[in-house]
Simulated assay, not measured.
Amino acid sequence: MSDLALAGRRPFGTDLLTMVGRCLRLSRRNTDAVLMSLLLPVMLMLLFVYLFGGAVNTGMAYVSWVVPGVILLCTGFGAATTAVSVTQDMAGGITDRFRAMDVSGAAVLGGQVAASVARNFLATVLVFGVGFGIGFRPQAGPVEWLAAAGILLAFVVAMSWFSAAVGLLVRSVEAANGFTFFVMFLPYPSSAFVPIDSMPSWTRGIAEHQPLNPVIESLRGLLLGTPVGASPWIALAWCAGLLAGSVALSVVLFRRRTG
């Protein structure tokens, strides 16, 4: 089989769990990448809060304003590293070996996405922990926490599948690494670190209509008890569209690369 069809001989769940375990073991061995994905967002949060926070007027404690943005930066960067993992597997020939063993493409790529979700869970917990330590005090109840977690999960899954598609599209690890740094800078032209109304008019237009901004606004509103308006629905619509397009593109690219 050369597409993303379900595995024939073994249960799909068995192959998927095997691929997830493999990806997590590889992540654990890649100490440099793990440390960077965990420590970089924390360092940026401390930098913004203690060096720039006093100069930015957000109408609330700056740490409360910035934590949702740092979480998106953290999860976006972590999900984007899926592109590097997929590219390494394709370039190294391991994917062809899996296909020869009748492991489905859905299991191969699904394992990468599931491992990305697990890695991002750890990084998010760390960011929240540091945020609590420096003064972040959310006002959310159980329902708001669940809603925020659902939106964040939808974003991570959609971005991870998009990154998997990019990993199938590019031919070198260097190109995949370039994509991760592009994703890392996406939160900057948004309300992640400064209010949008403080930006120049042309930047404000970009910030208001880019896909990460409604996710950030949703997390901030849900966690801090401020009005969210339609942001959660817009965020979920962006995630659903990105997920559907990424899965479809992954199907086409996986067939083309392994057929």
Rank of each mutant, 00 (worst) to 15 (best):
T87H: 08
L35I: 10
M159T: 11
T18L: 14
S116G: 14
L126H: 04
R22M: 14
L224A: 04
G167C: 08
V228N: 00
H209N: 15
G8E: 13
E174A: 14
R10V: 09
E144Q: 14
F185A: 14
W233P: 02
S191E: 10
N213A: 13
V170H: 00
T75K: 02
L38Q: 09
V113K: 01
F121L: 14
I206K: 11
R25P: 13
V166C: 03
V252F: 07
V215G: 02
S191A: 15
V56M: 03
S231R: 01
T203I: 14
L35D: 12
M36D: 06
F98T: 02
L39Y: 07
V251P: 01
T180K: 05
V170Q: 00
F155G: 00
A158K: 02
L126V: 13
G69K: 03
S231L: 04
L153M: 12
I94M: 12
L253R: 07
V34T: 15
G59T: 11
T14P: 03
N213Y: 04
V173M: 07
M45E: 03
G69W: 00
W202T: 11
F179V: 05
A91Y: 08
A164L: 05
F179R: 01
A80G: 09
I134H: 05
S198W: 08
G131N: 01
M101G: 12
A192H: 04
S231C: 12
T226A: 15
L236W: 03
R99A: 04
M101Y: 12
T82G: 06
A158W: 02
P142V: 13
C239A: 14
G225Y: 14
G93I: 11
R137W: 11
G54V: 05
T258P: 07
L39G: 12
W161N: 00
G93Y: 06
G59F: 11
F128H: 08
V247D: 05
F185Q: 11
L44G: 09
I71P: 00
A176V: 06
F179E: 01
Y188I: 15
M101A: 15
W145D: 10
L126Y: 05
L153Q: 06
A100F: 04
M45L: 13
A248N: 08
L146A: 15
A207V: 05
V117T: 10
W161T: 01
V157R: 00
G110D: 01
V183H: 05
G69N: 11
L44V: 14
W65Q: 06
A123H: 08
D32C: 07
P227Y: 08
F155M: 01
L186G: 10
F132N: 11
A61P: 06
W233E: 15
A237D: 08
I196R: 06
